[in-house]
């Protein structure tokens, strides 16, 4: 026996191996192209934001533009109120629709809900603002926290509905059957077996959707609008953190630019922390269900 029949041309093979390695190198470069801006942005927000963050920023009302000072307490409260109201409207609707799509959705209504919630999830966020503007701001004749919450709820509902549906679908069929086999009917099965098992993922979906609307700016520009003072009611305009970041960033005052960075720091912290909490929740739930 001999091994003299060289099927493979060694030069060609060498070139192919070089190309193989070069392409991996290019892929690593691509990853760097994503990681570099991420680190850069996070670093800038952390460094500049933290430098301008103070107790007063979190607890005081804004000072006059030319003087500077003061804080964004009203915007922080405003954001909490607007996002809270959007969740109050959105969680029951989103989770309920998700349950319906997953458990009873094999009919016209189920298919329509599935299709339209995906349509709704795909619309640009500013379009939700335009709709809330037309429905509420124009009708009431003024900007209001309420209209902002409606705009955010339009964005919140489809995301929660879809993630809830997917979370429920992850629960294996045999768990439902086990419950049926014990004589449990459909509604108790959903409420006591399927939903608790999927709760981790449902909550993760809710928290992630919340983090998203907490950072939304565009739909609030002409709904919740802005306010230099404390919000006086749900039917009154209110400041929010994201809109403030925008307004301060495009202002001509350097003091305000610094405050915009501080606001970005607060917003990013809220968004990232809630994402991490959602992740931890998810991981703990997954560990529990694996029996660890």
């Amino acid at each position: 026996m001999s091994t003299e029949t060289f099927v493979v041309n060694p030069v060609r093979l060498r070139l192919r191996m070089v190309r193989d390695h070069a392409m991996v190198g290019l892929c690593v470069l691509a990853l760097a192209a994503a990681v570099v801006p991420l680190v850069w942005i996070l670093w800038d927000v952390m460094a500049i934001g933290a430098a301008n963050l103070s107790w007063a920023f979190l607890t005081e009302l804004p000072g006059p533009p030319t003087v500077g000072g003061g804080g964004w307490a009203n915007a922080i409260v405003g954001s909490a109120v607007v996002v809270g109201m959007a969740m109050l409207m959105g969680v029951p609707v989103g989770v309920g629709a998700g349950i319906y799509m997953s458990e009873y959705g094999d009919n016209v209504l189920g298919r329509a809900t599935r299709f339209l919630s995906e349509v709704l999830a795909g619309i640009p966020s500013i379009v939700a603002g335009v709709v809330a503007y037309g429905l509420i701001v124009v009708t009431m004749g003024r900007f209001s926290a309420m209209s902002g919450a409606v705009a955010l709820a339009i964005l919140f509902i489809p995301v929660v509905a879809i993630t809830t549906q997917e979370a429920l679908r992850l629960i294996p069929r045999d768990q439902r059957e086990a419950s049926f086999a014990l004589g449990m009917a459909e509604a108790p099965t959903t409420l006591r077996v399927v939903l608790p098992a999927a709760m981790g993922n449902v909550l993760t979906g809710v928290m992630i959707a919340t983090a998203r609307i907490a950072g939304e700016t565009a739909p609030l520009l002409f709904t919740a609008f802005n306010n230099r003072f404390w919000m006086e009611g749900l039917d009154q305009p209110t400041a929010t953190i994201p809109v403030n970041i925008y307004a301060y960033a495009i202002s001509p005052f350097p003091e305000w630019h610094d405050q915009a960075w501080a606001g970005a720091f607060v917003l990013l912290a809220i968004v990232l922390v809630s994402n991490v909490i959602a992740r931890t929740l998810w991981a703990r739930r997954a560990r529990f269900m694996r029996g660890e």
Partner: peptide, 28 residues
């Protein structure tokens, strides 16, 4: 009754999602 109520309640909510989408399109 619970079973029927539950199915109808979630169905109603699902219909609300449909309605919201149609309202968005209609309003625009």
């Amino acid at each position: 009754l619970v079973q029927r109520w539950f199915r109808y309640a979630t169905g109603l909510v699902a219909a609300l999602v449909v309605a919201v989408t149609l309202i968005v399109a209609h309003q625009l």
